[in-house]
Design a protein around this nucleic acid. Structure first.
Lengths: 195, 195, 195, 195
DNA sequence: CATGAATGAGGATTCATTCAT
DNA sequence: GATGAATGAATCCTCATTCAT
């Protein structure tokens, strides 16, 4: 199914959101198609009208979440900020987004650690979940001399790794305050910055 | 099931290892009990003789993996190393362990992002997967003035987040060399160290 | 499942009748859902479409049998008969019904002596299996001075006990003729009648 | 297994009593051999040492219960009582016995309405559960002119039917007092007595 | 487009029974 | 005699998917 559909079709949106919610609570395989239909208040046949299979629904949902994420983080960048401020803005935007969209975080987590991930090619996923945008941003940082002159992938590893870990920390109540989160960005900025 | 059992019972070990391998390739729910039995070369009933249910098997497996991990990482610490060297040793030990036990990494990933995680209490999991040991180590670092005087949880977040991310990077072929991994530790050490 | 369904759905009827037959021959637990599906010529899933579980099927079947029984016995009462004649009519109707619906008798016998019975409340069962109708009839008899002025429950005990016993007698070939059955009613009528 | 064993073997007795209790609460098929072993505090192998199969255990248990019943009711008859008094004594003995041995009543109920019953021949059962003794007693009554000159089977039907029904009545709390039970015997005596 | 009854392969679990110690 | 680990056939139930209306 083309994701464009999404924006104009309330049934599809309802299916997406319901699926997201159910997956968060019961996992992929604890979420039956019939349950989705029931909770989204559509007929099972309707889901199959839009999505050829459950796998297809999951993958489309992955697209849907990726779009939402990209929109939220890169849709609001301010050109006038310094590189450092942009770095902080993006990293915190990441964390903020997932704190506000727990189901999506949960979905991504499960998606990446499931066999679904293997089906789609790596590159595809990258662009979907905002990774390629960030890789570009980090490369720029190296070129401008703002970041250490190392392997971008190492920087990306630090960037994403800590972000994901921070979100989990919040989720499981280890990182309790916004302050703690601020601590984390400060630490990694000290790690990645040049000199 | 008592984990002690584990070490002296070849059938249980066989069940554990087989399950680990199957879960890595097919996910939790893609791994049928009958398949485990078949591949572990025991009868289905035998599995149920040791584990009341599939859930129970999974949770016991979690314990088993945690024990193995702890043994591997904290069983070989050298008292004479400097704090920094120990920091590098542990972080790299983490990454090394999972590179050598891909099935366990895969298992943990799925476990934490699944509903199973909710069953066990948070503290339990912490001690199992070596987290509490590392928290202690980081606290020591703060007290000795080796690490920044911030929230330990923030440091832990950086420590684990990057380690996990590095392992994934290796797994998905983004971080290709040992060098890249070295880059990551260097970056975070610069981030967490005092001054 | 709503029993109303029953009367207009040939699949449900087929499931009911098949189950009744199989239970008579092989008992509750000797009757596998798959067997029912097979013999009723529906898919297993279809049974589960109408009944959430085997237990639920059994309980619904209990309702179905109760309805059939009530209809048969109380659907054909003649107002003009004397009390005594009505007494004989009902008692014999009871016996006749079960002689003609052996599977239902067998089912009830098993149902009442099984743990299923405990699930439903006592009153419910009473009305289902025609007991409350008969209690009313006996009470009327006492008030009219046709029956002994004792505890209704004692009368009911005699009424049902002998009827059930007579049916079993026929079933196991002890009571061989209609005459013998007639003997039984005569005996109890002498026992319950006033003076 | 020969029932004689029974009287001198505490393990067998324990198995019997445990089985009886479990069957009362969970039914035949809700009572697993392993559960019996557990609760009777013997090994599964031990049960199979005494009884070749579960069926065999059930049938032996049937014998055991029958023996206990016969002993209780016919072991204490007083020759000097009148026929009527003996009639009352036996009928009430029946009811009393089962009130005091609910598990046995429950067991018999289930046994008779289950496929086990069909395995054993009719005559066998009769003698076991005290039926043949009572048939003799009723025949005597006819010959002496104490009872109506009808089919013995009809009398037996009334005798057993009401007794069983009375026990159930007590069990399910319909017949609340001893008085009510007395009412029942009085009613049937009026029904069966001569003239 | 939308519906939901019907399907049946597949999976978790139970439990009577065996047998080596 | 007694034990209990091991077995695997049999069972209940789930759920993705189809298709006639």
């Amino acid at each position: 199914m083309n994701v464009q559909y999404t924006k104009n079709n309330s049934k599809v949106i309802s299916i997406f959101e319901t699926t997201l919610r159910l997956i968060k609570d019961h996992g992929f395989h604890g979420t039956a198609m019939s349950k989705i239909a029931q909770e989204a208040d559509v007929a099972i046949g309707t889901i199959y009208h839009y999505f050829p299979s459950k796998d297809d629904l999951i993958v489309s949902l992955f697209q849907y979440c990726g779009d939402t994420l990209n929109e939220a983080i890169f849709g609001s960048l301010d050109d006038k900020l310094t590189y450092k401020d942009t770095f902080f803005h993006i990293w915190k935007g990441f964390v903020k987004f997932y704190r506000e969209h727990v189901e999506m975080f949960s979905f991504f987590e499960q998606f990446y650690s499931s066999p679904y991930y293997k089906v789609n090619s790596y590159e595809t996923n990258e662009s979907i979940s905002g990774q390629s945008n960030i890789l570009k941003f980090l490369t720029t940082g190296i070129n401008k001399g703002e970041l250490k002159d190392t392997n971008v992938e190492a920087l990306a590893c630090v960037f994403f790794g800590t972000a994901v870990s921070a979100i989990k920390g919040v989720k499981h109540n280890k990182l309790k305050s916004n302050e703690s989160i601020e601590d984390v960005v400060n630490i990694i900025w000290d790690g990645v910055k040049n000199k």
